[in-house]
Design a protein around this nucleic acid. Structure first.
Ligand SMILES: [Mn+2]
Ligand SMILES: [Mn+2]
Ligand SMILES: [Zn+2]
Ligand SMILES: [Zn+2]
Lengths: 132, 132
DNA sequence: GTAGTACTTTATAATGATTCTAAAAAGGTG
DNA sequence: CACCTTTTTAGAATCATTATAAAGTACTAC
């Protein structure tokens, strides 16, 4: 199967649940943004087996740790994840409460002039809030 | 008093609790970042009267609505607020779990090239994650 | 294959930040 | 002072997330 090696290579056993979650997350043309609740709904629609909510949490966190998912820094009562793990940015539509990808190319190069002693930059993320 | 007019001008009654919270938030030389829990601790240290947690929540939200405080978009189990309401950015030190201000001048000008139909840009915020 | 072991799933409970409730207190106005 | 509105408050409720621990599954060694 498509995702068995991917999981094995990360030291994650390719269980039925994880493979099914992979299908839901990574088998679509487009990448997308989701909360755990969104994902739970999507799984219910696409998968006939039941996957417990605890497993969904566990799996999403495991995938995030392995770099298959990213968290998006945003203030919300739920955590937003992204299946687009490329270096990119986001619009946040305040009215629709929706995230929209903003590719690196759509943002001029960002040059952080200030340096912090003994620290390295791990990521630079831009959030552009949108209103009507 | 210093903050009575400020509150009245915003349509907020200058209660004892709000004035005391103003002292803690706005009377220091430097601006700072805080969670509600941080603020609760700070109030306990600096103010002899007890202020209920509900009032702290109410007041912080009222001040945010009036523009005296800003929320910082970041993934945490608590909401981070900023008494620095100027247009600026942040470092986030992942190990220390601390925010550091990054003035606009410390970030090159940011040019958002992509436009979203019918939407205006309300804010552009950069989060720079730091590791050792 | 079987046995042994570590990992995973699961239902359920616990946690904890935040919000809600509704009654008491305080502010503002005349 | 009355009157009305806003605010404070203790405590309860909410709800996303995490922890627990027992049952199930995957892998390894023989
Ligand atoms: Mn289904
Ligand atoms: Mn803190
Ligand atoms: Zn994205
Ligand atoms: Zn700041």
């Amino acid at each position: 199967m498509k995702y068995i090696e991917k999981l094995r290579n990360s030291g994650l056993r390719p269980t039925k649940q994880r493979l099914q979650i992979c299908e839901v997350l990574f088998n679509s043309e487009k990448t997308f943004h989701f909360t755990i609740n969104d994902l739970d709904q999507k799984i219910k629609k696409q998968i006939s087996d039941k996957i417990s909510l605890a497993t969904i949490y566990n799996t999403v966190h495991a995938f995030e740790k392995k770099g298959y998912l990213k968290q998006i820094p945003i203030n919300s009562n739920q955590i937003y994840f992204d299946t687009n793990i490329s270096d990119h940015h986001h619009f946040y539509d305040l009215k629709e409460e929706k995230l929209i990808d903003l590719e690196n190319a759509d943002v001029g190069p960002i040059n952080i002039l200030k340096k912090i002693n003994g620290k390295k930059i791990k990521s630079v993320e831009v959030l552009v809030k949108l209103e009507d």
